[in-house]
């Protein structure tokens, strides 16, 4: 197993983050740091990773478990390289989110919550992502894919497959310009 340790760059960022808050309040950095950890350690938070974060932040492990298990963006089980999160709420649902999900289930040959056998995709249905005006929509890593139809979904899956890269919320080279 890979040694659990932040890269030098991430470690510097983590240290900086903890200093953003008033004296003694560095626990505030926990959620941002968990995002960094999840991105760095294969897209999920194993107990070892959470213990490591606790030791870096000098807090109890249980405080990390409690927080990590509360928020739906933290994965406590391994996920595929691309976590496809399809909005299943109100407007998206009115405009065909279920068709998108069923289509993806068939195409990837997995059910919601499962990971494809090649470890490439995990399919998840999530609550409103604040993109209801461009429904239906889904998110992969940091990117929103909006106004979906089944062809667009197919094209996206092929592209992700050929790129073969892990997608995380944090990998954003530059803000996208409009």
């Amino acid at each position: 197993m890979k040694d659990i340790r932040f890269s030098e760059e991430s470690m510097a960022l983590v240290q900086r983050m903890m200093k953003r808050y008033p004296e003694g309040k560095h626990k505030s950095a926990l959620i941002p740091i968990l995002h960094i950890a999840q991105a760095e350690f294969d897209g999920w938070l194993s107990p070892e990773v959470m213990n490591y974060v606790a030791s870096v932040m000098n807090i109890q492990s249980i405080e990390v478990y409690e927080v990590a298990s509360f928020y739906s963006m933290f994965n406590l089980k391994p996920v595929g390289k691309c976590l496809i999160e399809v909005c299943r709420t109100s407007s998206c649902w009115l405009l065909g989110a279920e068709d998108v999900i069923r289509h993806l289930e068939k195409k990837l040959n997995i059910k919601v919550g499962e990971t494809s056998s090649d470890g490439m995709f995990t399919l998840k249905s999530v609550e409103c992502l604040g993109s209801c005006g461009t429904a239906p929509m889904l998110q992969v890593g940091a990117d929103y894919y909006e106004n979906l139809n089944l062809e667009k979904v197919d094209a996206l899956v092929s592209r992700l497959k050929s790129e073969g890269k892990r997608k995380t919320y944090t990998d954003l080279p530059e803000p996208r310009t409009l």
Binding site: K27, S28, I31, P32, E63, F70, Y71, S72, F74, E127
Partner: peptide
């Protein structure tokens, strides 16, 4: 400050808890 997926963190005191690094 970034959250991590919880509608309830829109409620102002849950938001403050979350900002303090706790459950929302």
């Amino acid at each position: 400050q970034i959250g991590a997926g919880a509608y309830i963190c829109g409620e102002e005191t849950a938001l403050l808890e979350s900002l303090e690094g706790k459950r929302g």
